[in-house]
Design a protein around this nucleic acid. Structure first.
Lengths: 214, 214
DNA sequence: ACCTGAACACCGTTCAAGT
DNA sequence: ACCTGAACACCGTTCAAGT
C-alpha cells in the first residue's frame, strides 16, 4: 500500500492562504470565542503561525482584515435613498446590524482609523447631505462625529455583558434597580436603545439646523 | 564601612503595596504608554510581578482598579443641580472630562460592567429625573442607554488617533476630504463634536417626551 | 499576611532553509 | 513567492519557601 505523503516543506504549487480566507476565518474565530491568537488562527487554517506573516502584517494586520470583513457587509447604497432622514438612519441601521451579527469583534475595532473605501464613501455622502441641508462644513463634521460616536457606543453595547450596570450589595440605587428589572432580554434592550437614540439624534439634527440658520 | 543591606525575602514588617497605590500607578503607566503589563507595573512599584497577586486578581483585577480610579474622579454631585437640563449635561461633561484627562484608559474599560457606587448613584438619579419628566421606566432606560452610548463613543473618540477617518490614495471622497481639512486640532475637534452631540441628545429628550406623552 | 524567585504554558515575531 | 521549523523575548499565572 503506497502511502501518498504530501510534501511538507517549501513553497506549495498553489498558495494555500490568501487575505480573504484569513480574514473570514479570523472573523469566525472571534465570533466563536470572543478573541483570537495567531496560533489559533493558523490552526484553523491548517497552517503554521509563521505562514501568516507572508500575507498580513502580524496581529494588527489581522485586525485590519477583520475591519474589512465587517465594512464590506455594510449597506453603503442605503445613502442613495431620499430624503436625508430616510437615508441616514438606513445607513446607520445597516452599520449597527453588521455589528449586531458580530458583536465580539467590536472591542477589537474601536481604536483604529477608518480606511474602508465603502465606509468612507458613505461618510462622504453624508457630509454632502448635511451641507445640502444648510450646515457649514465644520458643523457638518461635528454632527457626523457625534452620530458616529453614538453608533460606536451602541455597537459596544452589543458586545457588553447582559447587564451594563450591576448594583452590588449595600449600594442604594432603587430607581435604577427598578428600571433594570423592567428590561427585556439583552438583544431587545440594545436594539430599543439604539432606535431611541437614533430618533433623538435626528431630532437633534433638526434642532441644530434651526440654531445654525437662525 | 558597614553596608546596610535590606532584607529581600519574606513578608515585610509593613505591607509595601495596597490597592490604591497599585491603581494609581497603573493609571500613570497607561497615561504614559497607552497600555500596561504586570511586569512593567511591578517594576514601577519596586516589587516583583508575583507580589501583585496578593492584592489584585491578576491583570483583570488591575483593570478594575483603573475603573475605580477614573470613576472616583467623576462629579456625581453634578446631578444635584436644577433643572434637569442643567444637571444631566453637567454630569456627562464631568464624565467626559475625566476620560479627556486619561484618554488611553478608555479602550481598556469599554467591555466591562459598571459597578462603581458613585456612578450607579448618578444613573439612579438620572432615572428618577427622567421619570419626573414623565417618561415611563422602560423609556427612561432607553433614553439613558442611548445617551450613555453616545458618551462612551465620545470617550473612545478621545483615545482615537488624530484622524478618525483617513482617505487612502485612489479613494474618491472629496466632500469628506474638504470637511476633514477644515477641522481644528484633535482636542478641539473631539470636544466640539461632544458638545454638539450633547445638545442633539437633549433636543432628542424633549422630542421623545413630546412623543411619549402625546 | 505578604514578598520572593523559580517555574510553566503561551503568545507575537523573526529568520534561515526549503521548494 | 510562500510554507516550515526552530528560536527569541515577553507575558500572565501559580506556588513553594521565607518571614
Amino acid at each position: 500500500m503506497t502511502q501518498i505523503t504530501q510534501r511538507r516543506v517549501g513553497r506549495p504549487r498553489k498558495a494555500v492562504l490568501d487575505r480573504v480566507r484569513i480574514g473570514a476565518t479570523a472573523l469566525e474565530l472571534v465570533d466563536d470565542s470572543g478573541d483570537f491568537t495567531l496560533p489559533e488562527l493558523a490552526q484553523r487554517l491548517g497552517v503554521h503561525t509563521s505562514s501568516l506573516y507572508h500575507h498580513v502584517d502580524g496581529r494588527s494586520g489581522v485586525i485590519e482584515l477583520l475591519r474589512e470583513q465587517v465594512s464590506d457587509q455594510m449597506d453603503a447604497a442605503a445613502l442613495e435613498r431620499e430624503p436625508w432622514d430616510v437615508a441616514i438612519p438606513a445607513f446607520f441601521r445597516s452599520y449597527r446590524a453588521v455589528f449586531a451579527a458580530h458583536p465580539r469583534v467590536v472591542p477589537l475595532l474601536t481604536t483604529t482609523t477608518v480606511r474602508s473605501p465603502q465606509v468612507l464613501a458613505a461618510y462622504d455622502r453624508m457630509v454632502a447631505l448635511l451641507e445640502e441641508l444648510g450646515f457649514p462644513v465644520a458643523r457638518a463634521m461635528e454632527v457626523l462625529t457625534a452620530v458616529e460616536s453614538f453608533v460606536i457606543g451602541s455597537a459596544l453595547d452589543l458586545a457588553a455583558p447582559d447587564v451594563m450596570w450591576e448594583i452590588p450589595e449595600g449600594v442604594e440605587a432603587p430607581r435604577l434597580a427598578e428600571a433594570l428589572a423592567s428590561q427585556r432580554d439583552a438583544a431587545h434592550r440594545a436594539e430599543a436603545a439604539f432606535e431611541c437614540g437614533l430618533r433623538m439624534m435626528l431630532a437633534g439634527v433638526a434642532a441644530e439646523l434651526g440654531a445654525s440658520t437662525a
